[in-house]
Design a protein around this nucleic acid. Structure first.
Lengths: 231, 231
DNA sequence: TGTACATCAGTGAACGCGCGTTCACTGATGTAC
DNA sequence: TGTACATCAGTGAACGCGCGTTCACTGATGTAC
């Protein structure tokens, strides 16, 4: 039954084409304005045809979210793996740059997963949470590697017992065996990178600083300082 | 003509009531779902009645944006002014806390001015830019005060000529006479606070860290270290 | 104090629009024998 | 190789909905004299 296979492959191809068309539309109008009819129109189909591929609008949005998280996680992972494992500082910087570059390259995807939630849409967490954890894990592993090699100093002021307990919950929930403090540091680093990228993306830097590349690099350096890793 | 005055006051009161109702609605459904008809319904009016107060939907959105920026700027300013002028570190921390508290208290307003733009709406910049600059100025002034008092160290690696030129443009555009480096630092600090607050607000911290208050406080301390201000 | 007039908030009907989703259908493609 | 049948992508009409905005109107409130 090779012809049946072909049919399935075609089905997958069109599902992919629907996603790509949807991404184009969100680029133009924002994710909240996603419209099945508009997607069908652009693909030269009628709207009901899409129901062969996604049961309803929410399912399409969920597929978009998974798609975005996957692309995001892969971008960070690739950036990290392009640097030798022992060069912890360089790895952190590479991931930080990849974060910004991905956000600038795919602003719609970035907005969908990190921006204002779409009104009326509730993500099924069992499907969206795992890919969301990927980005953070990329950071955590770098820091944990550095610590195991004796290159990551522990903080001067230790985390409170309360915060340690929270991190312990988190570790067991995601089954992480990495240094607890690495989880804290990863969050702190992530929030810095996220703050810079989202301000730039939404045009909230002063107009004359529309390309804050150097600010970004300086902040990456300061992040290394915060982590106690020297270049 | 005191009665005429009363009429005008009433007009202003109802404009205010429309804004407040709009804020309630965005809380429930997000800013993109703002609907004149829904606002009128909740106020016990018919939709055309609103056209006595705002010429169209976009004008209402613009009014909401100005309203949010004003409330935001005032919150930061009040927080700063509650601390004596010479206590630069404490002032920074107070403003940082106020940022988070305002964002958590008014998540809809925060989303409207810092989140994903509303599809199809283009803000008239001459009306939205000035209030947007207020928040940053609150920070810049603290840092400039500290520098003038000899308490703010300049960075080890000076800013590049390119970046200095961009900041110079920015300074002249907003008519600032503060230390250029204070502008840079204010941006860096702002992005850190913004990153933390927006991750928390949109629920992107791991579930067990849903109250990242201590993380926020630790990061505020690290911001002081980054600025070279000691508590 | 009373009357004629102007102002203006608010109504109700109507417009054209695009949306998600359903339904019965057509026609092409693939399967079984 | 040919025929009967099943599968399934896609169509076109229709549903009910809520939206922003316009228009001619009613009725209350305030002004001028």
């Amino acid at each position: 039954m090779p012809s049946d296979r072909r049919r399935l492959r075609l089905h997958d191809t069109i599902r992919r084409e629907i996603l790509d068309t949807a991404w184009e539309q969100t680029a133009a109008n924002g994710a909240a304005a996603l419209s099945l009819r508009a997607i069908a129109r652009q693909m030269g189909l009628t709207a009901p045809a899409l129901y062969r591929y996604y049961p309803d609008r929410d399912a399409l949005v969920t597929a978009l979210i998974v798609d975005a998280f996957t692309s995001f996680g892969q971008a960070l992972l690739q950036a990290r793996e392009a640097v030798p494992q022992q060069e912890y500082a360089a790895r952190l910087v590479a991931v930080g740059r990849a974060y910004r570059e991905w956000a600038l390259a795919y602003p719609q995807r970035y907005a969908l997963i990190f921006g204002t939630p779409i009104p009326g849409y509730v993500a099924p967490t069992e499907v969206t949470l795992p890919p969301a954890a990927n980005g953070l894990r990329v950071l955590i592993e770098i820091l944990d590697d550095a610590w195991r090699a004796g290159s990551l100093p522990l903080p001067e002021n230790p985390l409170s017992a309360e915060l340690q307990a929270r991190i312990e919950d988190w570790r067991s929930q995601v089954g992480s065996t990495a240094l607890p403090y690495a989880h804290y540091l990863a969050l702190a680093i992530w929030s810095r990178v996220h703050g810079l990228a989202s301000l730039e993306l939404y045009g909230q830097f002063p107009p004359s600083l529309s390309d804050p590349g150097e600010i970004y690099e300086r902040e990456l350096s300061d992040i290394l300082r915060q982590a106690g890793l020297n270049r």
